[in-house]
């Protein structure tokens, strides 16, 4: 398959039941859909749309996050039209994981920015069992500061905060999406952060 050439933002349509529907911004074949239960956050890749040999990475629009509550298409390359619903999101699905967040941190829900996991692995919030965490919700982090350990096949690496991809130089952690000992998936949001 041709390589991804361009990013294309999904369009968000609110529905009456409080859910958000993400719809196709173009006609084409929809592939690499996230499964039910996946968490989507602004800026995240959410599948690929193929149109006449061009491939567009579908991106979750700003201000939209939630848990996928719809099933992916049964076909690996599903033909979709402009405006066809691709995902139903439950915005509270995100708060369910770290429900301190949405109202508590003072930021409007979904207004924050996200730090994504660079690789898949187990997330440890502190350097060793019983020791204080690197950074908790409410803490301010800066460029180069450790956020967590990621354990991949018994190998630990420290994940540090990098002020890149539009993230602020200094930011306050709004919430963690992956609890201590939880599993992170590459490209999925690890934590929400807001400038301070």
């Amino acid at each position: 398959m041709s390589q991804v050439q361009q990013k294309l933002e999904l369009r968000a349509v609110p529905s009456t039941d409080g859910q958000i529907t993400l719809v196709a911004p173009e006609v084409g074949y929809f592939a690499a859909a996230h499964p039910r239960g996946a968490l989507l956050a602004p800026g995240m890749g959410a599948g690929v749309l193929h149109q006449l040999g061009k491939s567009f990475e579908l991106v979750v629009p700003k201000g939209v996050s939630g848990a996928v509550v719809s099933d992916p298409p049964s076909s690996a390359m599903a033909p979709v039209g402009f405006g066809a619903p691709l995902y139903s999101l439950d915005p509270s699905g995100v708060a369910g994981i770290a429900d301190t967040a949405a109202s508590g941190a003072g930021g409007e829900a979904g207004d924050g920015q996200f730090v994504f996991a660079g690789q898949s692995g187990r997330v440890w919030h502190s350097p060793a069992p019983g020791e204080p965490v690197f950074a908790a919700a409410g803490d301010v982090v800066e460029e180069g500061q450790a956020l967590c350990l990621i354990e991949v096949m018994k190998t630990f690496s420290t994940m540090v905060y990098k002020a890149q991809d539009g993230l602020p130089k200094r930011g306050k952690i709004v919430r963690w999406f992956i609890e201590d000992g939880g599993d992170a998936e590459s490209g999925k949001p690890l934590l929400e952060i807001e400038p301070c």
Partner: peptide
């Protein structure tokens, strides 16, 4: 459906028409 109401977003878009025909 291949795009928005204005002809430039839908009926005039050659690529979108051909993609719709193919799929």
């Amino acid at each position: 459906c291949i795009g928005g109401p204005a002809p430039g977003s839908s009926y005039l878009r050659a690529e979108a028409v051909v993609q719709a025909a193919r799929q």
